[in-house]
């Protein structure tokens, strides 16, 4: 029962987080909120990836005095390595988006995406 709870809390939780973010991207009008939603999706994806590499009762993939050899059970290090860089890049992309938002705000004095006239005809 508890295992089921844990499984669904991680998988379901991260998937839900992705879809909360997606809903935000699709429905919010404020550009900063859209970027926040994108950040939420990012977190959700990262969480899901790491959760997929989890092994029950295993250790973090570091050989040290607590786990002195690779005979001990480790979780999968590859998703972690990928997520590591994904977080950094996600932040950089969000910052780029924010820079664009700032430029758009300079021009239109609004954050509301439906009020930006340059995209309409």
């Amino acid at each position: 029962m508890l295992n089921f709870l844990e499984e669904w809390s991680f998988f379901g939780g991260s998937i839900l987080l992705i879809f909360i973010g997606l809903y935000g991207v699709l429905s919010r009008k404020n550009m900063i909120k859209i970027l926040i939603s994108l950040g939420l999706m990012d977190t959700g994806v990262n969480l899901l990836l790491v959760a997929l590499g989890y092994v029950e009762a295993a250790n973090a993939p570091i050989i040290n005095s607590v786990n002195p050899s690779n005979a001990a059970a480790f979780v999968d290090p590859i998703p972690q390595a990928l997520v590591l860089t994904s977080i950094v890049i996600g932040t950089a992309v969000l910052a780029l988006g924010l820079a664009l938002v700032m430029k758009i705000y300079d021009k239109y004095s609004t954050l509301n995406i439906s009020e930006i006239r340059g995209l309409k005809w």
């Binding site: 991680f10 950040g39 977190t43 990262n46 790491v50 959760a51 989890y54 295993a58 250790n59 973090a60 993939p61 570091i62 979780v75 972690q80 390595a81 997520v83 590591l84 977080i87 950094v88 996600g90 932040t91």
Partner: peptide, 14 residues
Amino acid sequence: LKAPDVAMTEAAIG
């Protein structure tokens, strides 16, 4: 989830 590296990154950057 036994991912201290990622946890650190997420805390510092995210």
